[in-house]
């Protein structure tokens, strides 16, 4: 009455299935779309020669900033499975660091962005060492506490301007070109963010992160230095937020605690973009960023009030979680309906 024969069959079938999956992934991966997008976006500001495209340029810039952050958040929240609702802290740290350098020494934040990213990343590394000791809901709550603490600290810290924040100089380019340095800075950052996410996902490091997200104890017993992996993922994601915050400060011409440590715009939105687009996928954060910025534009344009905006963000988040917990890309992929063009994994 043994059933070893069936076991062998099952194992063989499983292997064959895994192989078809791998082949399918190979066949569907495309690179032309991201590259094409990059070229189009690089050429987009030329439209300024034929008319006034200041606002569309602002919107694209804004979306690109979110692509940077959402892709960074994805490394921690998507790959590793640690949901942070406190990353605005690193956005603010980047913004303040580069803002202070600009205000004191006149060095553009675009140049300082990588350094600001490193500062945020280093802080992320240290905070990660502490907060990544807990997981699941505890981690989420600790990230919220972090935002609250950070907000108060920045408001109390007179050296960086207290509640009034820092005022930064406005650049002296003519109006139609004034946005371009920041535009290209964010374009490069967004491309970098997506590239980093891709490289991480396809590395041994990324494999380790996904193992942690599936089952941390097993990952650890499989010899993965889970603590280091998690903290590094946290630092990389904080790096992206720090860079984005740095340039955003100069673009806005000020850095202020209530704007930069904003829980909705810089903590929740990047998370929501990832979840909506598809946690753990490469294209997900990009699609999510485009969708959320578009939704937001729509709500602000039609309804105006920011209160409605919060309501809408909450509703979208709730409905996505309830009906598409895998996000757009994830759900499509699950049902094998994902257009080849959007499979960037």
């Amino acid at each position: 009455m043994s059933s070893y024969d069936t076991v062998d069959q099952i194992v063989a079938a499983r292997k064959a299935y895994n192989e078809t999956l791998a082949q399918a992934a190979d066949r569907t991966r495309v690179t032309w779309l991201p590259v094409l997008l990059l070229v189009i976006l690089a050429l987009f500001p030329l439209m300024q020669f034929v008319g006034n495209y200041n606002y569309p340029i602002h919107l694209v810039l804004y979306t690109l900033m979110y692509v940077t952050m959402a892709s960074g958040w994805n490394i921690l929240g998507g790959f590793t499975g640690y949901i942070s609702l406190g990353h605005s802290v690193f956005f603010a740290v980047g913004g303040y660091f580069a803002g202070m350098i600009l205000a004191r020494y006149g060095v553009s934040t675009i140049i300082m962005a990588p350094v600001a990213g490193l500062v945020a990343g280093l802080l992320g590394y240290m905070i990660g060492l502490i907060t990544l000791r807990v997981r699941g809901p505890s981690f989420i709550i600790s990230s919220l506490a972090l935002v609250m603490i950070c907000r108060i600290l920045f408001e109390k810290w007179q050296f960086v301007g207290g509640a009034a924040g820092l005022s930064l100089p406005i650049n002296d380019l003519p109006v139609q070109w004034a946005k371009l340095p920041y535009y290209y800075a964010f374009l490069v950052m967004a491309a970098f963010g997506v590239w980093v996410a891709y490289r991480v996902k396809h590395s041994k490091f990324g494999l380790g992160l996904r193992a942690i997200s599936k089952d941390e104890i097993k990952a650890e017993s499989a010899g993965i230095d889970t603590r280091f992996y998690k903290v590094l993922a946290f630092a990389i994601s904080a790096f992206m937020f720090g860079m984005a915050g740095a340039v955003w400060g100069e673009y806005l011409t000020y850095v202020r605690p209530n704007i930069f440590v904003h829980i909705l715009y810089f903590s929740v939105w990047p998370a929501l973009m990832c979840i909506l687009g598809g946690k753990g996928t490469i294209a997900g954060p990009v699609v999510g960023a485009v969708l959320i910025v578009a939704f937001n534009e729509f709500f602000v344009a039609t309804l105006g009030a920011s209160a409605i905006n919060i309501l809408a963000t909450g509703l979208i988040m709730a409905l996505t979680l309830m009906f598409f917990p895998l996000g757009l890309i994830g759900t499509l992929a699950r049902y094998r309906k994902l257009p080849r063009a959007l499979n960037w994994d």
């Binding site: 949901i83 609702l85 699941g136 809901p137 989420i140 709550i141 909705l264 929740v268 979840i275 009030a305 209160a307 409605i308 905006n309 919060i310 309501l311 809408a312 963000t313 909450g314 509703l315 988040m317 709730a318 979680l321 309830m322 917990p325």
Partner: peptide, 20 residues
């Protein structure tokens, strides 16, 4: 984890509704 995120979303819904 799911319920934390969901309740967070509803917190925003209620806040938005009250503020509206």
């Amino acid at each position: 984890e799911m319920t934390v995120l969901l309740t967070f979303a509803f917190a925003m819904v209620f806040e938005g509704a009250l503020a509206t």
